[in-house]
Write a protein that binds this DNA or RNA. Structure first.
Length: 488
RNA sequence: GCCGCGUUCGUCUAGGGGUUAGGACGCCGCCCUUUCACGGCGGUAACACGGGUUCAAAUCCCGUACGCGGUACCA
């Protein structure tokens, strides 16, 4: 089995592209096949300089490694279509010679004019096809001498697929079953553009064949052009690979998940945006895997290894799926919690030191331990400033509501009593507070809030004893006094 | 318009002739915790519609509606 992911470097890797890559990768790994990365850079007008680098680094970040691709030749290279031009020309010529394709000289203005002329409310987008080609300038309507002369004169031309009406083009989609198109509804697709470069349709089938691809797994947007591809395979006498068209990922409201659309809804579309926003790679992969596929049982949390084990094309769904950021966030929290404290500390080390100087390693690891269950993203820890420095302010609403007249006295008294705690441990601290409330015959509720406020400035957070243990005796007592001073 | 693909809780989905239509996210409640979370338990909520086939249809067939995709010298 050989599969491929074939992105076009016209933009950064899209979330849908990552899922397509993932499914290809999973299938290859599951069956001991080969996963090829091919860069389809035939559109010079939309080429984006750093897109390929982004695609490569995004895949690496997600844990998807290719076996063959740019910089990793497996005997089928090169893996950039811009480096394979002669092969496409060869195939195009073969098609022309065998009357499966033809040369057309029509300028884009002439084609626009044709469409303008034929456009009606019932037919808003006329095609260049078996009917209209008869009235255009191409090697079917011109003498071969005229064609040869124009070509020799260096006139621009394109190569078009010659589609003959009257047949049914059938193929089996692994996900959708039998799919059938009437050849009369297929247009004469341009195969070679006037700049001499192939279109996707030509380059794609040539490469899939030459690279011995056995399974073409791609987005559903390609389903309508598949009959053209089938025709090309047949014209060349090549076997058609197994086809699998994945359901599209839709926006949360059901429309297309375009950049524009998604931005409006606050949904990142490129993988690098997720990476920058601090999403766990595992979470994104896990979420994407479940978007259109399921294992057939109730499991939802999967590591990459488990996905490889469980994945199959047969369990991929057929209908479009809406993107749900909340579910992604749930996966993110889950995977974040599965990481070790020290691993998360490693990730945050630099930004923590930049924001709060002189945070010891032990302190950071302990802070992570205290907060891990309360974070959505690892970087959210930076927002819990009180874990790393004394509060500079106290949450106003909470103060207004729960800071009572006797709070300063209670807090000061407790601070005094803490002076005599010799062993600064969770147990001793709990004991100290218990004893304190008993001696003063007060309810625990009376003192817990002032302590929390003094320690963190916030109405919620980690346990009191945990925080006191983390801050140490001197700092804890200092925070009590500072709070009293500030709220006096 | 035409061509194609779809349609089970708000969302992701299981189920493919006989099910109290199951799970997850979200939301709500309870428990745990004198905080907030995590966790546990429970609740809310769905077979697009109309015809057929059948003893029996969410499940098979047809139609309609709706959604999505395509209709480029973009991929």
């Amino acid at each position: 089995m050989r599969v491929r992911f074939a992105p076009s470097p016209t933009g950064y890797l899209h979330i849908g592209g990552l899922r397509t890559a993932l499914y290809n990768f999973l299938l290859a790994r599951k069956h001991g096949g080969t996963f090829v990365l091919r860069v389809e850079d035939t559109d010079r007008t939309r080429f984006v300089e750093d897109a390929e680098a982004d695609i490569l680094s995004s895949l690496t970040w997600a844990g998807i490694q290719f076996d063959e691709g740019p910089g990793l030749n497996g005997g089928y290279g090169p893996y950039r279509q811009s480096e394979r031009s002669t092969r496409y020309a060869e195939v195009a010529n073969h098609l022309i010679e065998h009357e499966k394709a033809y040369i057309a000289f029509d300028s884009s203005e002439e084609i626009d004019a044709l469409k303008e002329r034929l456009r009606t409310p019932e037919n808003p987008s006329p095609r260049y096809d078996h009917e209209t080609r008869l009235s255009m300038s191409n090697s079917l309507t011109m003498s071969s001498e005229d064609v040869a002369r124009k070509v020799a004169a260096g006139e621009e031309y394109v190569v078009r697929l010659l589609v003959t009406p009257g047949s049914q083009i059938k193929f089996t989609d692994v996900i959708r079953g039998e799919v059938e198109f009437d050849s009369a509804t297929v247009d004469d697709q341009v195969l070679v553009k006037s700049d001499g470069l192939p279109t996707y349709h030509l380059a794609n089938i040539v490469d899939d064949h030459d690279m011995a691809i056995t399974h073409v797994i791609r987005g559903e947007e390609w389903l309508p052009s598949t009959p053209k591809h089938v025709l090309l395979y047949q014209a060349m006498g090549w076997d058609v690979p197994q086809m699998a068209h994945l359901p599209l990922i839709l926006s949360p409201t059901g429309g297309k998940l375009s950049k524009r659309n998604a931005d409006k809804q606050g949904i990142p579309v490129s993988v690098s945006q997720y990476r920058e926003a601090g999403y766990e790679a595992h979470a994104l992969v896990n979420f994407l895997a479940m978007l259109g596929w399921n294992p057939g049982d109730d499991r939802e949390v999967f590591s990459m290894e488990e996905l490889i084990e469980a994945f199959s094309l047969e369990r991929v769904g057929q209908s479009g799926v809406q993107f749900d950021l909340q579910k992604l966030e749930w996966f993110n929290e889950h995977w974040l919690r599965s990481r070790s404290d020290s691993d998360i500390a490693d990730e945050l080390e630099t930004s923590i030191q930049d924001t709060f100087s002189d945070v010891s390693r032990e302190h950071l690891v302990e802070a992570v331990a205290l907060m891990k269950d309360r974070l959505s993203f690892a970087s959210d820890l930076l927002e819990a400033e009180y874990l790393f420095r004394r509060p500079s302010s106290y949450d106003e609403k909470s103060v207004a509501k729960r800071w009572k007249d006797d709070s300063p006295v209670v807090l000061a008294a407790f601070a005094d009593s803490l002076e005599s705690v010799d062993e600064w441990t969770l147990d001793k601290l709990e004991e100290a507070l218990q004893t304190f409330v008993e001696i003063h015959e007060m309810g625990m509720g009376k003192i817990m809030f002032p302590i929390r406020l003094a320690l963190s400035g916030q109405p919620s957070g980690p346990g009191l004893y945990e925080m006191m243990a983390l801050f140490g005796k001197d700092e804890t007592i200092a925070r009590f006094r500072a709070c009293n001073d500030a709220l006096a």
